[in-house]
Design a protein around this nucleic acid. Sequence first.
DNA 1: TTGAAAGCGCTAACAG
DNA 2: CTGTTAGCGCTTTCAA
Lengths: 331, 331
Amino acid sequence: MNIAEVADAAGVSSATVSRALSGRGSVSPRTRERVLAAAQELGYVVSQAASTLATGRNRNVGIVLPFLDRWFFTQVLAGAQQRLMGSGYDVTLYNLEGDGTERRDVFETFLLRQRVDAVIAVSLELDETEVSRLHALGKPIVGVGGPIPGIRTLQIDDYAAARLATEHLLALGHTSIAHIGGNEASDADFHMPVKRRRGFVSATEAAGIEAARFIGADFTMEGAYRAAKQLLGAPDRPTAIFAASDEMAFGAILAARDLGLEVPHDVSIIGLDGHDAAEFFDLTTIAQHPRSQGALAVDLLMAELEDAPLPASTNLPFELVVRGSTARPRL
Amino acid sequence: MNIAEVADAAGVSSATVSRALSGRGSVSPRTRERVLAAAQELGYVVSQAASTLATGRNRNVGIVLPFLDRWFFTQVLAGAQQRLMGSGYDVTLYNLEGDGTERRDVFETFLLRQRVDAVIAVSLELDETEVSRLHALGKPIVGVGGPIPGIRTLQIDDYAAARLATEHLLALGHTSIAHIGGNEASDADFHMPVKRRRGFVSATEAAGIEAARFIGADFTMEGAYRAAKQLLGAPDRPTAIFAASDEMAFGAILAARDLGLEVPHDVSIIGLDGHDAAEFFDLTTIAQHPRSQGALAVDLLMAELEDAPLPASTNLPFELVVRGSTARPRL
DNA sequence: TTGAAAGCGCTAACAG
DNA sequence: CTGTTAGCGCTTTCAA
């Protein structure tokens, strides 16, 4: 089934079929009708490969991400893919998870096969070679959730978000506050944990608090659970904890409970992310909106690819959502 | 950058370059060397579109799934995509989540664009039209985690797995056992909840227990939390709960704790899945291995597409993993 | 073992 | 508004 058969059926040339189906070029309403009917009848759908070869356009964007099993990544992915589908684009998924071969293959082969018109890079910290390979593609690229040198990136102001979280605790009257943030491994891989830590430090210092404690974990619930136990088991335990992610905050809440501490009366806990399960845990958090971030990344790309209108704002909102896990410290 | 430039650089014809690079057809070792070197030097990578047009092969498989934010789905996806990448295949992601337009678009347009050589359908219950469209593609298809009429599907024996979970509780001496399974909505969308419920019922009946209770939830932690509260708040609360998924079991554990009940002494809880967080919750569960299932689906596809060897076994293992959430009932 | 050449199915000038 | 035609970049006979 190809364009010629449709042309025959409709009694026109293949060029006209192409025009009628793509909407590019002019076709009389009546002919268009006939062509559409014939195509419908025959169940004809354009062969992407042929179309791509002729136009250079794939209608396909690549999404590269470091893992699939972290809430933030799948949210961005879902948001981006839904928006792309709306524009008739496919998404090719490149998951870098694995022993490193995956990562190399993606940058040295897969992305070069001319399959994608653009790429969305989610929370990737790239080395120089990778960045230059990306640039060499000569294709629109946008990053989400992690800065890439020379590439436009969408990300919340992690520093400000962390400050806001900390200031919430300060405003409630807490003076003994601890932060559960990234460990060496996560700090090496991503900038985000460091920025959030700096926001925390800056807020506590501005409040004249010198005893602010920090402990690193691996951004999992379990890691944070252990970290929180350390923090809360100490004789001079803090009255509040700011966890650098909601998943870590969940771990902290469970740790507090297991120690027999009541949240928020014995210890207030705030997270950062706006995880779907935050409401269930009654967790106060700074919400960001990764799905929208994915969608926005697509809008940016579409502006370049299809000269669609540029999104009005690329400002990424985050906001304090106060729930039951934070309160004034018990006197 | 195209094959002709490489041919020039290597001083051979484009046909030879094609042969050297693809491995198909014979090329003298020396020529091959030169071609490879030239390609490497120029950073040449085959254009998929052109290659596809000439051969009809895409080296791309589509993975269709109902959501992205459920542990099982992302695991299957990750497992499949890693294996595919290993074979040089791209994966195109079709997420059906949304208001229904997505679903229609995927089946009526996207899959027909001849972009994929095969499709993996994860936990999809399809209606007749969808099934016939899939068949009409004339491409290899394998389902994972949900049966599709006329299509080979990989899935654990949910009935048997649920029986095993229940029998574990019975073997510990429980006689008052409740099951948290699917609600009407999930039962309508998937067969799995029903099968697991049947396994539960069959095991309890075989043990001569007539008082086995059932309550439906939506397969989320929160839904199961509420369900478990109902169950455990009742005067004649069960001494054991079998939740149809680990995420639901987590909810049940938290509900028990919030009611002041100790797990496992006041109530034993078992899940089904082998979720990454099960160890953290010290949850006894029936583990299945969705990553391997995704990989196995790919092996099956590769056997058809590249006549790679058929996988030795398509048997999907599951096993009881006993942790601290189950014990004998307190007398 | 290698090269010439004919497509694969579609699009986009260019004419008419 | 519509048809003719020349590619897009690769693979694969067919001959040499």
